[in-house]
Amino acid sequence: MQKLINEPADAVVESLEGLQLAYPHLLRVSFSPHYVARVDAPVRGKVSVISGSGSGHEPLNVGYVGRGMLDAACPGAIFTSPTPDQYLAATRAVEGGAGVLYIVKNYMGGVLNTEMALELAREEGYDVASVLVKDDVAVEAAHNRRGMGAAVLVEKIAGAAAEAGRPLAEVTRLAQRASDQARSMGVALSSCTVPSVGRPTFDLPADQMELGVGIHGEPGRLRLPLAKADTVVEMLAEAILKDMAVRPGTSVLAMVSGLGATPQHELFIVFRRLHAFLQAHGLVVARCLVGNYVTSLDMAGCMVTLLQLDPELIALWDAPVHTPALTWGV
């Protein structure tokens, strides 16, 4: 294992300490329990948006804390969903009197821990809603789909709606619509290595790729010989479009996110083909995002996420945001 860590057991805390030192003007980190809150929270009269996930997916979610996006993020252990006490502490810290929305990626651990958090927060009198993100078309049963890249887009849209002063029901409805209209699929060229384990989670020969991989190193839909970039992009985009049923002329947001160990150089090669492919299918690539936005530690590969847009979602996407990982309009 070649990693820039000190002790595996200290990695999550030390990474959060570094985040705090790098962005003291945007966020503050609580270490007992772990959560990251925007520096000016609680913002009175505004709905608070909170999301959690295992660590190892950075910038998701801690890098999306700030004005126009998340009020708080709860980082778990590596690839492990955070615990209910983290959500509860974050809720108490950032709730501004207008209610709270939890954005939850569809994994059993994430769902169970946030269900408990919801129960506890409601017992304390907070008005809390939740939206489930489940965009991974590699899992065919729709109810069981994993939350992937759509989390970034749903968090941005919910955060913008909250910042605009919309009430909880409205923020929830818009987040739900973004979640419903997004689809993703990923491909791995190499496994990630969890620090506490010290060796790759799965064996993937150099001439193979794992299509439909999950962001925790869960195996994907199928293993194939490694193909050229254009062919891989077509496989991902075809699987996504097959599931989306979008009419020609529809505007989409196209995101290409590296999984941690693929250079931006290659991500643009991926986006180049994706853009042409979507245009050839009559879609309008109205907005895009290319870079490392949802990662899986040091996995090589990428995921493609498409979000069907409409004027309301475009306006929310374009609204100002100021976080470590997404900043515009400020």
Binding site: A77, M108, G109, E115
Partner: peptide, 14 residues
């Protein structure tokens, strides 16, 4: 266990 295990196992053992 609920506050330290995380994942699905924390709530289930809890």
């Amino acid at each position: 266990l609920v506050s330290t295990v995380g994942g699905a196992a924390g709530p289930l053992y809890g």
